[in-house]
Simulated assay, not measured.
Amino acid sequence: MLSIGEFSKICKVSTKTLRYYEEIGLVNPDGINAKTGYRYYSIGQLKKMIFINRLKSYNFSLDEIKAILELEEDQAEEKLCSAFNKKKREIEEKLSDFEYTLKQISNDILNLEKGIPIMSYLDDIEVQLIETKGQNILYMRKSMSSYDYAEGYGKYFSKLYEKIATEKLTLVDKPMTIYHSPEYNPAGNDTEFAIPIKEVVKGTRDLAGGLCAKSVLKGSYSELTSVFAKLREWVENEGYELVNSPYEIYLTNPYEIKVPEENITEVYFPVKKK
């Protein structure tokens, strides 16, 4: 048996962390001295602790790790493989975002060295005034926090596409997101996921057409804030006002592109003249 101190040294985990793991039921000591309260761990638990450390290095949360450890033996291998693949995709997305950020900051440095203001790129964002046609959309409306967006986009669009396939509905355009909240709320924003289809069925509604200020983003979704800001500035300067919720249309599938620069997103602000 190993004392908690010996166990912590070998596994490179503090005794405070081990006590917390015991508190949440992740790793319990094999024995506790009734008189002294000293914790002891078996040699066999070293393997479990090393496995936990590996999962942590893959950015699994403690809740996710606990769920993995509780898997039934006959399901463990398949579900672990699935969890690893999902985590791998998450890491690849983060790596891609970091690569994009690195390019962005390198470009900012070059511009600063040339005396070009960092925010001058906003002047290059083009805005068009167009007339859109009304559409019949299959939709799901949810309250989404900023932490939910990455997973939510895939989850809710997948459910909509599944319904389209199951009921043999007809796609007529690209997926879109409509933002209904009057202001940003970190706790949750009124967000509608929608896909235009031909048939009028349960779960569809009309999306009105009309005059819109439109801009196109070619690049990372992180730049959408700049496009929204440019559109809002244009609407104000040109004497228009918003009459409905802004929305985005995704011309590219984020799971099929290789780099963020290949993303193409259209942004629409429904407007009328003041």
Rank of each mutant, 00 (worst) to 15 (best):
K87S: 12
K88V: 11
R89Y: 05
I91M: 11
I91P: 02
I91T: 13
E92T: 09
E93W: 12
E93Q: 15
L95D: 04
L95N: 06
L95C: 08
F98L: 09
L102C: 01
K103M: 10
Q104P: 00
I105T: 11
S106T: 13
S106I: 04
S106E: 15
I109H: 03
L110P: 00
L110I: 07
I116S: 08
I118F: 06
I118D: 01
M119G: 09
D124M: 07
D124S: 14
I125G: 03
V127L: 04
Q128S: 14
L129S: 00
I130F: 00
E131M: 10
K133D: 10
K133A: 05
G134F: 01
G134V: 02
Q135K: 15
N136E: 13
N136P: 05
L138W: 05
Y139S: 12
Y139Q: 05
Y139E: 03
M140H: 03
R141T: 11
K142P: 00
S143D: 15
S143C: 11
S143L: 14
M144V: 14
S146P: 00
Y147A: 12
Y147D: 10
D148K: 07
Y149Q: 14
A150M: 07
G152D: 10
Y153K: 06
Y153I: 08
G154P: 04
G154F: 15
G154S: 13
K155M: 12
F157H: 11
F157Q: 03
K159R: 07
K159P: 00
K163G: 01
I164P: 01
T166I: 08
K168V: 02
T170C: 06
L171W: 02
V172M: 05
V172N: 09
D173M: 04
D173A: 13
K174N: 11
P175W: 03
P175N: 04
M176Y: 00
T177L: 07
Y179E: 07
H180N: 10
P182F: 06
P182L: 10
E183L: 05
E183T: 09
Y184E: 08
Y184N: 08
P186A: 05
P186Y: 05
